[in-house]
Nucleic acid binder design. Structure first.
Lengths: 334, 334
DNA sequence: GTGAAAGCGCTAACAG
DNA sequence: CTGTTAGCGCTTTCAC
């Protein structure tokens, strides 16, 4: 391992100067700087992160809490975050709160404590990772950015405009002639579910269609709920099927597509299907889903920006909140 | 931040004793140990990793190189690895060699260099992450475990039994009465592709069926190749369709299922479909794919075990090679 | 603009 | 079995 001392010797300067070249370029004369930089390159010197960290109290690592890396939305979020971290020399530590066999609430809290003690420069939390315990963010001591809707405004956050997106999807489906639309929501204890639901139902109301509670089914955002919803649809409405069904997540919609296929129900022939979300995995789903959502990578970039401004001290005011508009992608299912 | 000194004071011992309790439990008398442990608990003391690392020369982090976290196989590999690392107090640093817009070969090499310099305790590389440059592993200086087929045997490796799996799938399809089976392979420059291909074609040969080169299509393992393969199938064989098609990866198979559906071709009515791989995402694909493969989590665990034995020095002999048998999952497509 | 020196928190000889 | 002590490699006052 080549250390700073060797670089100093090779460049014929003191070790302090080398450090300055690395950390405060401007404090060193251009001539010297160039010499030092050549020595660094020739020796292939890389500062020891542990030593740097020990000295400065920084770790150059951030933690990322997500509920489930298996969900396409979070996979893409993580990929975006990692790419961004990589280009800034930050380590990204991923924590899945929903580890197999565990209880996500406990895991969320456990990881939160662990992360704080362990020491990272910053934390990015994706909505459901702190399911039901968002209040914990009020007392968190690490700079944090939240991805999702955070009613308590405890930390900086960036989210999709769930109301507007669902509203627009509602308007779109109505424009296609649908009036009886089944609606599979997210879980009611989850904020974003209610926001999306409100947006969707407002669209119906604004178009003069009454809200029919019997057409609403509370799902979980997860695949099994897609299957359940189809079963519900058939048991509850087989004699008078709605002409379309809107899912609050693409995972439910995908599973539902499978369930519908299992039963020989054609999409969109027998029923139109639309869903929330905008993830790459949808590109290979057939029939191609009409969906609305935000590119997870946009959320990643935004969150990291918010976080970096905190970590670097560039911003230290009250928590900020960014709301991103969604994109509607029309395909053959609706 | 509570440090070791404070723990020592609270427990009324020297700081060395505390360190010993942490690192060499047995060198301290039970009575003292208990006192120290209580002090640690009461103060919520957590050792500073940077300081530990600086002193010991270890980082307590391992790097994981994969080609694409968006591919279900790698997603699950990563999840398994993270879970395992977590329980051992290791940080898992993920490196996607195939970052968007990049050239994976360069990225692989770039990351490899970076990882070596950066300093980690160990490295886990998943096959295609070092695509075409596996020879680089011969000169790698970090303890490394490879997941996949590694002909040069440069480091410890764990892999699926690709030959046997494909052979068994071939036998299975034959047992279902198929004789003309289209075969969409992986890319020929990739070792595992040829192994799977050989296994599959051996099964046909053993059953007395001649190998028909015109029924073989070279794919890429990636989704677009699934679409391409269907196009090829229809252009090349529409007048005399094979009764089944076997894909060397589930991503190609899934895309092909979509492409077939787009064209109104029924599965398995018009053609049976089978594929390699055993990932959770397949559970929601309809029709349900008949596949054969190994649970990625088993590969994860195995790789981490190999690696840990190296890192800890428990093993230091020549590179080992573990081959895992696959599981056949029969569903409705074949 | 440059250098000498102190110390971040911890571990492991070494001595007792 | 326990304690004293010397750094791990780096950054940053503080003098020059």
């Amino acid at each position: 391992m080549v250390k700073i001392q060797e670089v100093a010797e090779r460049a014929g300067v003191s070790l302090t100067t080398v450090s300055h070249v690395i950390n405060h370029r401007d404090r060193v004369s251009p001539a010297l700087r160039e010499r030092v930089e050549r020595a660094i390159a020739e020796l292939g010197y890389i500062p020891n992160r542990q030593a740097q960290g020990l000295r400065t109290g920084r770790t150059n690592a951030i933690a990322i809490m997500i509920p489930d890396i298996g969900a396409p939305f979070y996979t893409e979020l993580v990929r975006g975050l990692q790419t961004a971290c990589d280009s800034e020399g930050l380590d990204a530590l991923i924590y899945n709160t929903d580890v197999p066999g565990g209880h996500s609430e406990d895991h969320g809290l456990h990881y939160l404590r662990m992360i704080e003690k362990r020491g990272v420069d910053g934390l990015i939390v994706a909505d459901a990772a702190l399911h039901r315990i968002q209040h914990e963010l009020l007392k968190v001591t690490v700079p944090t950015a939240f991805i999702g809707n955070l009613p308590n405004g405890a930390v900086d956050s960036i989210e999709q405009d769930g109301f507007d997106s669902a509203y627009r999807m509602g308007k779109y489906l109505i424009s296609k002639g649908h009036t009886r639309i089944a609606h599979v929501t997210g879980p009611s204890f989850f904020n974003m579910s209610m926001i999306r639901q409100a947006g969707f139902e407002h669209a119906l109301a604004d178009a003069g269609h009454p809200i029919d509670d019997s057409l609403r089914y509370e799902g979980t955002f997860l695949p099994p709920a897609g299957h359940d919803a189809v079963r519900w649809l058939l048991e509850r409405h087989s004699n008078n099927m709605p002409t379309a069904i809107f899912f609050a997540s693409s995972r439910m919609a995908r599973a539902a597509l499978a369930a519908l296929a299992d039963r020989g129900i054609r999409v969109p022939g027998d029923i139109a299907v639309a869903s929330y979300d905008l993830t790459k995995d949808l590109e290979d789903v057939r029939p191609r889903l009409t969906t609305i959502g935000v590119d997870p990578a946009d959320l990643s970039r935004g969150a990291l920006k918010l976080l970096n401004e905190r970590v670097s001290g560039a911003y230290s005011g009250p928590p900020r909140r960014i709301v991103l508009p969604a994109t509607l992608e029309v395909h053959m299912t609706a």
